[in-house]
């Protein structure tokens, strides 16, 4: 489902070139949930951004559902993000001007894949059914993150990429959010790749890969 081959990325700095990822290889199968761990600055977020097509690699290949993300035009990458990926960020990154209901359905609607039954189920399972008419600012951090997860899953993506989704939440809420995410991912049949610092949360997922000095172990 996701195949990352010999992926490298470096950044030019005034002090010289900083190599963040060095020939990284990774495969994630459909229905599988994988935790991506590593020290701060090890390149976890960079890897996630490259897979999401938000940034371009120096070399290597990213193939999602048989289609190459790397090397695709910006328009094609945007289309793949819309239709095949669900993104969850630490800061939630909800759209503050839209109500919860509109935030939940936003990506599915722009991808033309809105499924009301699925959206309704998601809202119910995420405990958001009574909050659809509220604005994000009126929700707690945990509730906002549940909206972000719902938005990512509403499009029925092939892969959900989550970058420290519980970084802003307390332990109990974090556990609840991850458990819920895993359950819904399994229910929808998609894969999950989640960046986390927490070994405890990583242990809740099927598999764990660790990034050290730009390489996966």
């Amino acid at each position: 489902m996701l195949k990352v081959s010999r992926l490298s990325k470096s950044y030019g700095l005034p002090q010289g070139t900083l190599s963040v990822l060095r020939e990284v290889n990774l495969q994630v199968a459909a229905g599988e949930s994988v935790a991506l761990t590593g020290e701060s600055g090890s390149g976890k977020s960079t890897l996630l951004h490259l897979i999401a097509g938000l940034d371009e690699p120096d070399s290597g290949e990213i193939v999602l559902d048989g289609k190459a993300m790397s090397g695709a035009s910006e328009g094609d990458r945007a289309q793949m993000r819309r239709e095949k990926l669900g993104l969850v960020f630490q800061q939630f990154n909800l759209i503050p001007s839209l109500k919860v209901g509109d935030n939940l359905s936003f990506q599915a609607r722009i991808a033309g894949k809105l499924d009301f039954a699925w959206l309704s189920e998601l809202a119910g399972r995420l405990g958001l059914a009574d909050m659809l008419d509220r604005y994000p600012e009126q929700l707690s951090g945990g509730q906002q993150q549940r909206v972000a997860i719902g938005r990512a899953l509403a499009v029925k993506p092939s892969l959900v990429l989550a970058d420290e989704p519980t970084g802003n939440l307390d332990e109990a809420t974090a556990d609840e959010v991850v458990r819920l995410a895993r359950e819904l991912v399994a229910r929808s049949g998609c894969a999950l790749l989640m960046v986390t610092h927490s070994t405890r949360l990583a242990s809740l997922l099927d598999r764990r890969v660790h990034l050290t000095a730009g390489q996966l172990t």
Binding site: A52, L54, E74, G75, A78, Q79, M80, R81, R82, E83, L87, F89, N93, L94, I95, P96, S97, F106, Q107, I110, A111, R151
Partner: peptide, 12 residues
């Protein structure tokens, strides 16, 4: 912060 999520969600 308002525009980046839309870009991430697939709006060029």
């Amino acid at each position: 912060p308002q525009l980046a999520p839309l870009w991430a969600l697939g709006v060029t």
